[in-house]
Design a protein around this nucleic acid. Structure first.
Lengths: 212, 212
DNA sequence: GTCTATACCGAGATAGAC
DNA sequence: GTCTATCTCGGTATAGAC
């Protein structure tokens, strides 16, 4: 919030210290947040510059075009996801990693109800304009899908079954966020989260055990 | 495609005849299609006017503002959904009505893979700008949710259970469309459709039978 | 590296002739 | 009712001083 020198948007809490972060990073953060809250189209460079306390003209020193900034936001999100999964790598079993993922939904319930899914909403918007931005956005969702897939593989499921399970989970997650966001009611997310936890808990460890 | 008089966008197939439709309706149709394909934001009045073969300035004779046109598109969709459900009213059992709904997904698979869900995508975009448009969009999705809910009620489920089931179905549907659209792969929709059909088929008729 | 001023363009909206 | 010309504004992007 406040900052030692009086300049906004260039300081950030890291642990218990306020550290200086570059303007480039400031702009990416501001853009990320505004894209999520207002949408890709509804956010002007002026909005972003103002939120990051950077003069409009200066934005172009860091990003040649608006598209470059969008791309940077996308890459930044991808990096964030990878970092989080890196941490989850410490969890011993793949099922527990998936459970950790789903349990973590709770944290985002209000945010998702208010503004939708950062990743899914981004894809949705990007799909409309197509081109490079759509591919960028898709790659972020793809990385999530792949990670889920990998967990099912590690649980012993074959390619096909793991793909189906991963699609089902991500699909349910995204759909429930859309409903909660549209109707401004977190219940859809909560019910889906509970369903997924139950389903994951009952799922046999590998397909040998499965034998339907 | 072609039209007797050479004017585009004012003629339409109805049964086996070409009938004259008003410019107002032409504009709504063109807008509906463009909003779906290009998104709400990416579509200018000039695009719409051009697609409907109506001069730009003339649009304002039919709609005072852009928002009014958006609203008209939304209302038109709602009317279309109601009409379709009217037809399905002829189907005797609620379970069969739900099955008819899901079986009908097939028809839209390619369209959804290419451009997402007309209704869900509209909500997603509208949610970002908020205000009256968001409410308009939400009401279209709401009417679908309510219809599904009614079918479960007619099957004998209580309020709470019917609400859960309806949320689950719509959520799965919307999520699967998002994945298919993002990854340009109809498989997510197809798998979800199959899952829903199976689930509906196995679902007990009412909660007295259910007794888990 | 930073910032101000401004060029330029596309979009919504209006005026007014026909 | 229909259409052309045009106004105005907001947005991306650039020029160029400091």
């Amino acid at each position: 919030m406040g900052s030692p020198s009086g300049f906004l948007g260039i300081w950030m809490e890291r642990g218990r210290h306020l550290v200086r972060i570059g303007k480039r990073e400031s702009l990416i953060r501001a853009a990320d947040s505004l894209f999520h809250r207002q949408g890709l189209e509804h956010t002007s460079l002026a909005d972003i510059a103002s939120a990051a306390s950077v003069p409009l003209g200066n934005v172009y020193y860091y990003f040649k075009t608006r598209g470059d900034l969008v791309k940077a936001v996308s890459e930044n999100r991808l990096a964030g996801l990878r970092a989080r999964r890196e941490e989850w790598g410490a969890i011993a079993s793949p099922r527990e990693r998936l459970l950790a993922w789903v349990e973590n939904f709770e944290t985002y319930t209000d945010e998702c109800t208010a503004h939708g899914c950062r990743i899914g909403g981004f894809c949705q918007e990007a799909n409309k304009q197509g081109g490079a931005i759509a591919d960028e956005a898709a790659s972020v969702l793809r990385s999530t899908l792949d990670w889920i897939f990998d967990q099912f593989r590690a649980m012993g499921y074959g390619e096909r079954q793991a793909r189906e399970h991963a699609g089902r989970m991500l699909s349910a997650r995204q759909g429930s966020i859309l409903l909660s966001n549209t109707f401004k009611d977190p219940e859809y997310i909560r019910l889906e989260t509970a369903r997924l936890l139950k389903w994951l808990g009952e799922l046999p460890a590998d397909k040998k055990e499965k034998k339907k």
